[in-house]
Each structure stands twice: as C-alpha cells, then as structure tokens.
C-alpha cells in the first residue's frame, strides 16, 4: 500500500533508540564568516566629544559581539582609520582578538584612500576564506564620517574611487554602508556611492547606539538566508530586530 507522510509536526526525539547506533561521526566545520570593515574618520573635525563618542561606540560594538557566543564565532572585524592617511589599525580578526583601540583625531580626511584600502582588505580576506574552504557572507564596508574627502579633489581620482566602489557593490563583492553625522558632506557621499548603496545620517552624539545596531545587524546574518535581500539593504528603516533610532533622512 502506498504511504505518504510529511513533517507537519515536529516529532519528538527518538530517545529509546540505541545511542550507540546513532554515533555516526560528523564533520567539524568552521562557521561561515561575516567580514566587516569599519572605515572610521579620525580627522581633526572629530576632535573632542565626537572622537570620544566614536571611541565609546567602538567599544560598545566590541562588547556586544563578544557577549554573543554565536556572533563571536562568525563576525570578523577590520578597523581602518583615516585622517592624513588611511591605515589598518587592526586587521581582520574575531571579536575575541579585537583589542580596545585608542582613537586620536587630527589631520585631513583621506576618505578615498580609506575606501580603496577597505576594498583591498575585503578582497584579500575573501581569497583567504576561499583558500581555506571557509564559507562566508557578503562582506560589509561601513564608513563613518563627519566631513568630506580631502583626497578626492581631483576629478579623475574622485571618479576612480567612485567607480571602484560602485562597481564592487554592483558586482556583489561587498555591501557599502555610508553614515555621516550632521556636518558631513552628504551630497559628496551620495555622489561617491551613486545608486550602489545607502548614505544614512546619524546623530554624532549617538555613536554608541549606532554601533549597537551595527553589531546586532552583523550578528543577525547567522539567521539569514535572504536570497538577494539582507538586513542591511535599508539601514534607515527601523525594525523590531535592528532598531536604529539614531538614523535620519539625508
């Protein structure tokens, strides 16, 4: 007689099965990795309360992820600061290995160099994941600024960086997320990113909330299998999962 069945209800575990009969070995895989590059503006305009708030926000990001057992296994963070130049102040690592970073403000705003360096770090990390056979999510390129790029005044250079950024996003190499405080040059940021990503305004005094939202969003990847959609697609849209009350329209 034909019989069909389906999994409408979750059956209880078969507890009376011989435990020895179930002891099949399983592989012990690495978790898929969620790479996140933070591009942090540490130019002179960030002096005072802004750099202090940024520092506290970064610490909040670190603490939140460190306290989430699953997230701490999947999120890898790279921190790049930019002022007179862009530099990797911390290469990709797990949250466990991300130290408290002392930020100092001063100098110009080498945002173009930071974007270029961030993209390079992402490509290198993805190559490493592939080599190691590790699964990974689409990386995030998160930029936080209170100003405008001072190293993109030449149109050719501006076009070069905008093209790298927009093409990379269109080719799905990473997800760019740009955030600016009230003083940021939003038209310039939007011009850089074109239609390849979002520019969101945030209250510079609320960096801590921003980083808490960011850490929740990145760690939330482990629950996702969103096809072409990820939680970050519209960071200005508050949800119950990742509220971002600091955001405003720009």
């Amino acid at each position: 007689m034909a019989a069909s069945r389906s999994a409408i209800d979750l059956s209880p575990p078969a507890t009376d099965l011989d435990a020895g009969a179930l002891s099949f070995p399983i592989a012990n895989p690495d978790k898929p990795q969620a790479a996140c590059v933070l591009l942090l503006d540490t130019s002179r305009s960030m002096r005072g309360a802004s750099i202090k708030a940024l520092q506290e926000g970064l610490e909040s990001y670190r603490t939140f992820l460190a306290n989430d057992e699953e997230a701490s296994l999947i999120v890898e963070t790279c921190v790049i600061t930019f002022s007179d130049e862009a530099k990797v102040v911390h290469p990709f690592s797990s949250i466990e290995s991300l130290p408290q970073i002392e930020l100092e403000a001063g100098g110009w705003t080498a945002m173009g160099a930071a974007i270029e360096l961030g993209i390079q770090q992402i490509e290198e990390r993805k190559a490493f994941y592939k080599e190691e056979g590790v699964d990974y999510y689409r990386p995030f390129l998160v930029l936080l600024t209170d100003g405008a790029p001072t190293d993109l005044k030449q149109p050719a250079r501006f076009e070069e960086i905008a093209s790298k950024l927009q093409q990379g996003a269109r080719d799905r190499k990473f997800i760019p997320l740009f955030f600016g405080t009230g003083k940021a040059d939003f038209p310039k940021l939007k011009q850089l990113l074109g239609d390849a990503g979002t520019v969101t305004g945030i209250d510079g005094a609320r960096f801590e909330e921003f980083f808490q939202w960011l850490s929740k969003s990145v760690s939330g990847l482990k629950d996702s299998k969103p096809g072409d959609k990820v939680a970050f697609t519209d960071p200005t849209a508050p949800t119950t999962e990742t509220p971002n009350p600091f955001a405003f329209e720009v």
Binding site: S11, P13, A14, T15, L17, A21, L22, F24
Partner: peptide, 11 residues
C-alpha cells in the same frame, strides 16, 4: 528503525 534520522538530528 525508521526513527533513525530523528535520533541522529536530536544528538
């Protein structure tokens, strides 16, 4: 035992 898979997944 047809509960073989259930038992495995419950490990």
């Amino acid at each position: 035992d047809e509960r073989l898979v259930e038992g495995f997944l419950a490990r």
